[in-house]
Design a protein around this nucleic acid. Structure first.
Length: 584
RNA sequence: GCGCCCGUAGCUCAGAAGGAUAGAGCGCAGGAUUCCUAAUCCUGAGGCCAUGGGUUCGAAUCCCGUCGGGCGCACCA
């Protein structure tokens, strides 16, 4: 149950009726732009609507006059206790207790489902994230887009979309060939050869030593003196699989599961790339030409040469983009086009890519590409996560795949746990940079808001435990009556009212793809609860458990049960486990 | 040179599809514990929302310019 959507629908109905009676002349699509929100100040009421102000322009009337027209109709709604006009034309609504009682009862009944809705209407949607190159372990830089993508997928799931979480394996380019050659060096090393320095241009990372050992286990020394063409493809496949297995293990540890993996190499081999390019060609969107070098940047070895080019600028990109390299092979872009077209052909008209900020320059061309391939039927939305500045004791941590020195995602998870790591990554909106001091996160100091929220949840369970001791025969909280409900204090009703905003928060977060909204909501919700808790320290009658007042205690347990459900469901969306006790 | 993102309290950041007196944490100054976990709470100080215009009943929010910061800029992924 969602107070705000109930009122929204009823007010829509009122507007339509007034429209029918010619009291309003605005087109009905103007009506949908009105909002029913929580008032800025709780003192103003439970709900507020800007309907009068939104209609003002199309009606050509002063908002106050329109508010006067709407007010009596709103007052007639059965659950409205009181409604008033305020400010420039807000209509503030105070609802009857019976509605809040219904709200509480519905939360207790819904349990895990509280916060869910069906705005997605079962629409198929594909969320692609992580998609790290299988040339090494996941590192700290992958952490944020991975969590953001995962939580966006969770949000969409919660709001009724048919979601597929997907990982694109970049196993088709020259990078994996380099990788195979690097693995060969480690293979020789594992067989006891002195390899000296890792040759320039190969991956120097120590993590490849395990791959070398694995290769020896599988192949013995049979390739030690074999020419490259004999082992290259074999080693390439082995190494990619080996590293993907490690990546999958890390993802699981990070709480990212149920992903579908799609291989770039497979798309090339099964002809998907040729098919996609052919589709573009048939639409007349491909030509042979020479691209100009971009101004203002120094590019060594610029080769002015005719190549195959896609007219992406006709679909919103800044310039046209090449599809083939000078050696005739497909560019990454060409293959990625095919991949997104492949998703479309698998039924995903709605697609989301979650990328790091270093891929920001790539967005326009791939969005343009899908639009062109599907005549606008397939829509790709790209969410960019800004960089995380990793610090250690205030000092920037230098990371470079080339040098082989970086903090791996595993390192972070092992040090602070996946729950803290995930939560911290979500404490900023995607567009904002995060400074993350590795040593501070390791300390698990109180500056980390995850503990604040966890503590609130743990306190709920503490109350449940205490209640059991004081009232061993306390009945289940699922059947709260209106009588019991009336025992709640105004502050407690206030908390319930805030709990009632959860579904709206989830819906907004999902539609806007902004996971951080859930974090801030949970934080504020926790703050309200901690504050309430402390009031029991000053006034014993405000404590949740009153040994001499069983009915009041029961009502409060019901409230706390609803709170605990909300906290838990919220944390679940974030992929963070709700703790029942802080002591472990 | 071009594209994308950002600029809100001393610091780190929220700000709800344009709405009421711009919020939180940290830090700072004070205070609360015979009591369900003080990992908490309460009070106070602190802002020309970078800047100049525009749109409107109304702008931190939308549009344009300027300044400052980040990321990216064939044939890497």
């Amino acid at each position: 149950m969602n107070l705000f959507s109930i009122a929204y629908n009823d007010i829509q109905e009122i507007l339509m009726q007034l429209h029918g009676k010619d009291a309003l002349k605005s087109a009905p699509d103007v009506f949908s732009r009105i909002a029913v929100d929580p008032p800025k100040d709780y003192q103003h009421g439970d709900l507020t609507t800007n309907a009068a102000m939104v209609l003002s322009k199309s009606e050509g009337k002063n908002p106050r006059i329109l508010a006067d027209l709407l007010l009596p109709e709103i007052q007639k709604l059965e659950y409205v206790e009181d409604a008033k006009i305020a400010g420039a034309g807000f209509i503030n609504i105070k609802v009857k207790k019976i509605l809040l009682h219904k709200l509480l009862a519905s939360i207790l009944t819904l349990g895990d489902l509280y916060g869910s809705c069906d705005v997605g209407k079962g629409t198929k949607i594909n969320v692609e994230y992580v998609s790290a190159n299988p040339t090494g372990p996941l590192h700290a830089g992958h952490s944020r887009p991975s969590v953001a993508g995962d939580v966006i997928a969770n949000l969409l799931l919660k709001t009724g979309f048919d979601v597929q979480k997907e990982y694109y394996i970049n196993d088709g380019g020259g990078q994996t060939e380099k990788l195979a050659k690097s693995a060969y060096v480690r293979y020789r090393e594992a067989l006891g050869q002195d390899i000296g320095e890792i040759p320039e241009g190969l991956y120097p990372g120590e993590y490849l030593k395990d791959v070398g050992q694995g290769l020896v286990q599988k192949y013995g020394d049979q390739f030690l003196h074999a020419p490259q063409e004999v082992w290259l493809e074999e080693f390439r496949v082995f190494t990619v699989n080996f590293l993907m297995d490690e990546i999958k293990t890390t993802l699981e540890k990070f709480g990212i599961t149920n992903m579908v993996f799609r291989s770039e190499d497979a798309l090339v081999k099964d002809g998907s790339v040729d098919a996609a390019i052919e589709t573009l060609r048939a639409k007349g969107l491909i030509y042979k030409g020479i691209l100009e070098a971009p101004k203002g940047v120094q590019i060594d070895e610029w080769e002015s040469k005719e190549q195959l080019i896609f007219k992406s600028s006709e679909f919103g990109d800044d310039v046209d983009r090449p599809l083939q390299r000078s050696d005739g092979s497909w560019t990454y872009f060409a293959k990625d086009l095919a991949y997104h077209y492949d998703k479309y052909r698998r039924g995903f008209k709605q697609q989301i890519d979650v990328l790091g900020a270093d891929h920001g320059g790539y967005v326009k061309r791939i969005v343009a590409g899908l639009k062109a391939l599907t005549d606008g039927d397939g829509v790709l939305e790209v969410r960019i996560c800004q960089m995380v500045n990793f610090l250690d004791n205030g000092q920037p941590v230098k990371m470079s795949k080339r040098a082989g020195t970086f903090i791996t995602l595993e390192d972070i998870i092992d040090a602070v746990g996946k729950d803290v790591a995930r939560f911290v990554m979500l404490t900023r909106k995607n567009d904002a940079h995060i400074d993350l001091d590795y040593s501070k996160v390791k300390e698990q100091s109180k500056e980390n808001p995850v503990f604040y929220v966890q503590y609130a949840h743990a306190r709920c369970h503490s109350v449940f435990r205490q209640t059991k001791e004081v009232f061993p025969d306390m009945r289940s909280s699922s059947d709260i009556t209106l009588d019991s409900f009336n025992h709640l204090s105004p502050d407690e009703i206030h908390l319930l009212w805030f709990i009632g905003q959860f579904p709206m928060c989830v819906e907004h977060a999902a539609l806007l793809k902004e996971p951080h909204r859930i974090v801030y909501y949970l934080y504020d919700l926790s703050a309200l609860f901690h504050s309430l808790w402390n009031k029991g320290k000053e006034d014993a009658m405000l404590r949740f458990i009153l040994p001499d007042h069983k009915d009041t205690t029961f009502a409060r347990i019901c409230l706390i049960s609803a709170l605990q459900t909300t906290l838990k469901n919220g944390l679940e969306i974030l992929g963070v486990k709700a703790l029942e006790e802080m002591r472990s």
